[in-house]
Amino acid sequence: MGRIILDKVRKAFGETEVIPPLDLTIEDGEFVVFVGPSGCGKSTLLRLIAGLEDVSGGAIRIDGVDATSTPPAQRKLAMVFQSYALYPHMSVRKNIAFPLRMAGMTAEEQDKRVNAAAKVLNLTDYLDRRPGQLSGGQRQRVAIGRAIVREPSAFLFDEPLSNLDAALRVGMRLEISELHKRLATTMIYVTHDQVEAMTMADKIVVLRAGHIEQVGSPLDLYRAPRNTFVAGFIGSPKMNLIGGAEAAKHGATTIGIRPEHLTVTPAGGTWTGRIGVSEHLGSDTFFHVAIDGIADPVTVRAGGEVALHYGDTIHLTPDLAHLHRFDAQGLRIA
């Protein structure tokens, strides 16, 4: 079980309110990702749920029980920290067994659980090493191991992949997703990387300055961003947001069109522009196109091997079915 309800939760450090009253329901077994730019309060929110920070107002309910003033150890939540927070003087085995030892479990039971976790995480060969002798990815797995042996009702991840290199990050992302499928336990995951959010989440919570901007499945957010902030944050490369006369033609203050919803044609087309920087990824090519009458360069996706170069003139046609319109407050026009 792991249903977590935040009811008007508020957090202030002295005079500054970092999280204004906020409501959120996390269903049992869900993989929820808190995503937002740095300083948006996502880590603070996670620490409030963990009990490492006291709430300034409101209530946190875990499985129907008010846990607002329950100490962290008794909330049955396990947390994986950004720095992994492994105990450097203990072997991997002792690190993983630590929560079990604190719970007063017998040595045999501890061994059984540690070995089971080590098997799942491919750590069996490293159980007698110290954290200092492991690579970043292995340390990450030890931290996850320490979390799963407790069989918590929910896992909390605080930017767990941000200290890994890009290749390892993709691998660990898959491992965590697989772990979630296998354990079917609630997971709350904090990241500033929208790719991690899109690939792992059942439900994404987009935060800005402590406010929830939008909650929904990755594709909901991709298809129908509620405002320009979410529109610009979700999706890679980011959506082109165009104001001025072009937007007025569609009866909006700002229009948004994703790079993948623009068609490149040699002639004709709605907009004509000149290619600036081009990014060749092999499978795709992204052109930054300067268009007359549009202030910022427009990003457009083209095929992997197109014969277009710096300075070439190209014609773009937006797919009107995927055109997003926003009003003067930046809110979506339905």
Partner: peptide
Amino acid sequence: LDSEQLEAAEMDGAGALSRFGHIILPHLA
């Protein structure tokens, strides 16, 4: 001492004395 280590120990169910004995004291060795 990394404060996240103490927080991790707290989440792992270590009381103040256990945190001192298992985390702080080895760090001070």
